[in-house]
C-alpha cells in the first residue's frame, strides 16, 4: 500500500496543471488542445499507473481477499469453537446441576442412613442400659436376699445356741460326752 502513496499527489499535480492551463487561455479554439493533451497525459498517467500498479494491486486485493477469507474462516472457526465451548459449558453446567442433584440426593440418603443408624444405636444403647439395670437390680435383689437369709440363719443359730445353753444340764453334758466316746470307739 505504501508503494502507491505517490498516486494521489501525482493526480493532484495533473489536475492542477489542467486547471492552470484552462485559466490561462483566452481563446475558444486554443482551449481544446491543452485539454486534449491534458487528457492524454491523464490517460498516459493512468496507463502507467495501471501498468505498474495493476499487479501489486491485484496481489494486494488477492491478499486482502485471502486475508478476509482467512479472517472469515478464523471467525467461523472461533465461532464454532465458541459454540462448541458454549455447548461444553452448557453440558458442564447441566452436568454440574446433575452432580449437585446427585450430591444432594446422596447427602439426603446418607443423612437418612445416619439418622437410622443413630436411632438404631440409641435403641441398642437403651436396650443395653435396660438389661444392665435389670441385671444390677437382680444382682442387688439376690445380694439382699442372700444377706437376709444369712441374717436369718445367723439369728436361728444364735437363738438355738442360746436355747441349748439354757437347757443344757449336767446330765446332757454326760450324755454328749458318752455319745462322743461311743463314736470314737466305733472308729477304733
Amino acid at each position: 500500500m505504501r508503494r502507491f502513496a505517490f498516486l494521489p499527489a501525482l493526480g493532484l499535480t495533473v489536475l492542477a496543471q489542467s486547471a492552470f492551463a484552462a485559466g490561462g487561455g483566452g481563446h475558444e479554439e486554443a482551449s481544446f488542445t491543452p485539454v486534449i493533451f491534458q487528457g492524454l497525459n491523464l490517460l498516459i498517467l493512468l496507463g502507467i499507473i495501471v501498468h505498474y500498479a495493476k499487479a501489486p494491486l491485484r496481489r494486494s486485493l488477492a491478499d486482502r481477499a485471502a486475508q478476509v477469507t482467512r479472517d472469515i474462516d478464523e471467525a467461523a472457526r472461533l465461532h464454532g469453537e465458541a459454540e462448541a465451548r458454549l455447548k461444553e459449558y452448557e453440558a458442564k453446567l447441566a452436568s454440574l446441576q446433575k452432580e449437585a442433584d446427585d450430591l444432594l440426593a446422596e447427602m439426603k440418603r446418607e443423612g437418612e442412613h445416619e439418622k437410622e443408624r443413630l436411632i438404631a444405636d440409641a435403641k441398642a444403647d437403651a436396650e443395653r442400659i435396660r438389661r444392665e439395670a435389670e441385671r444390677a437390680a437382680e444382682t442387688e435383689i439376690a445380694r439382699a436376699k442372700a444377706r437376709l437369709e444369712a441374717e436369718i440363719a445367723q439369728h436361728a443359730i444364735t437363738a438355738a445356741e442360746r436355747i441349748i445353753r439354757e437347757k443344757l444340764q449336767p446330765a446332757d453334758h454326760r450324755r454328749l460326752a458318752g455319745e462322743y466316746l461311743s463314736r470314737l470307739e466305733e472308729r477304733a
Binding site: 437369709e149 444369712a150 436369718i152 440363719a153 445367723q154 436361728a156 443359730i157 438355738a160 445356741e161 441349748i164 445353753r165 443344757l168 446332757d172 453334758h173 454328749l176 460326752a177 455319745e179 462322743y180 466316746l181 463314736r183 470314737l184
Partner: peptide, 29 residues
C-alpha cells in the same frame, strides 16, 4: 457349749455342740 474336741497327732475329733451348730449354719446358708 457342749461336747468334746480332741486334738491328737495332727487330727481333730470334734464332737462339740458348737461344731454341730456351725454345720447346721452352713447347711442353712
Amino acid at each position: 457349749i457342749g461336747g468334746v474336741v480332741t486334738r491328737i497327732g495332727g487330727k481333730v475329733y470334734d464332737g462339740s455342740v458348737r461344731a454341730q451348730l456351725a454345720t447346721l449354719h452352713a447347711r442353712l446358708r
